[in-house]
Design a protein around this nucleic acid. Sequence first.
DNA 1: GTCTATAGGTAGATAGAC
DNA 2: GTCTATCTACCTATAGAC
Lengths: 205, 205
Amino acid sequence: MEVAEQNTESKILEAARQVFTQKGFAAARMQEIADVAGINKGLLHYYFRNKNKLFKAVFDEAFERFALKVNDIFAADIPLFEKIEAFVDQYMDIMLENPSLPAFVINELNQKGDEFVKGIMNRKHRPNPLLLIGQIQMEVEAGRIRPVNPLHLVLNMLSMCAFPFIARPMFQGLVQVDDATYLKLMENRKREVTDFILNAIRVKQ
Amino acid sequence: MEVAEQNTESKILEAARQVFTQKGFAAARMQEIADVAGINKGLLHYYFRNKNKLFKAVFDEAFERFALKVNDIFAADIPLFEKIEAFVDQYMDIMLENPSLPAFVINELNQKGDEFVKGIMNRKHRPNPLLLIGQIQMEVEAGRIRPVNPLHLVLNMLSMCAFPFIARPMFQGLVQVDDATYLKLMENRKREVTDFILNAIRVKQ
DNA sequence: GTCTATAGGTAGATAGAC
DNA sequence: GTCTATCTACCTATAGAC
């Protein structure tokens, strides 16, 4: 449960990430973060003044890391079909590497007020799907794919990749599978979702 | 903000539903629930003993209402293509009627421990996708649709319907749309998602 | 059944020794 | 920088009058 050898600030951040992502802001306890970090509670305040600032540090870092990776894929200069495959692959890899992160981000954006969301969304590094939407639009106009609404297509891609991770407890509760089976299912899912999307937009012969 | 004329227990439940779904269990305050209900804090404990029991009452009711509707669609005795259309339509209607509910359920299942999830999932009324999965399996074997993995297909359907509501703040933050526009988008989305799915599974001529 | 007042516990934050 | 001790505020829950 404890955190590896590193400087105190890093230990705190990693512990805070663990506790905040698992419990959410409101249920997270400074005492537990200190315990996980293996340090004293007072030190949290020495480094990060208060709970809100510590949370903001964790959330911003997580959100930005996420945004950068996603934008890399959105902006890549490759054909649409390849980009969709790459997107599904890499997006689900991010999820597999940080299983509790997407639910955490979504949830805090839901519960914190509008000002919080505004603050997050008005930063330079945020997911920007416009490039991908434009690319889809061009393919539609050229008649190379079915006439789909580009915004909904992007939303479909995001949904199918992210939802199974966000709703993991519900999913694992409904179809009774252990963690190993679940992870295997998600690995298979990459191929399944990619095929699903490509068949959905491909023009009929 | 206050709650209409009804008996005290109903007023409490409706107020609790509002506050819990918006703030989540940990951040919800008994005082605020009492205020919204327009009654005194002590009455909450008179009717529901403690915060946990009040929460359980709200959560169970929401989850069960949701499960019953979903199962109705899963179990309907109609052809697959019609069922998919009906599912998308009705499932998204549930979301439109209770916008903050799906995120609430998902989130509490994430944050509360495994015992809580077990407790929820071992009840008679819970979503049961097995009938739909079986129906898909039969269509695949008969060669009437593409050979898709039935479990992933169901997951795709759920994902595309639910995710835009769960991630609504993020979505509205990224593509800057007001609430009215968002709702219109979700209405259009029914048709778009249905077509998307049907094209994805239809056998090529 | 409904209210007021308050007990009891806990969590965030600070003060101050080392 | 790191610790211990403590302050203060708040929140759940209870007691008791009406």
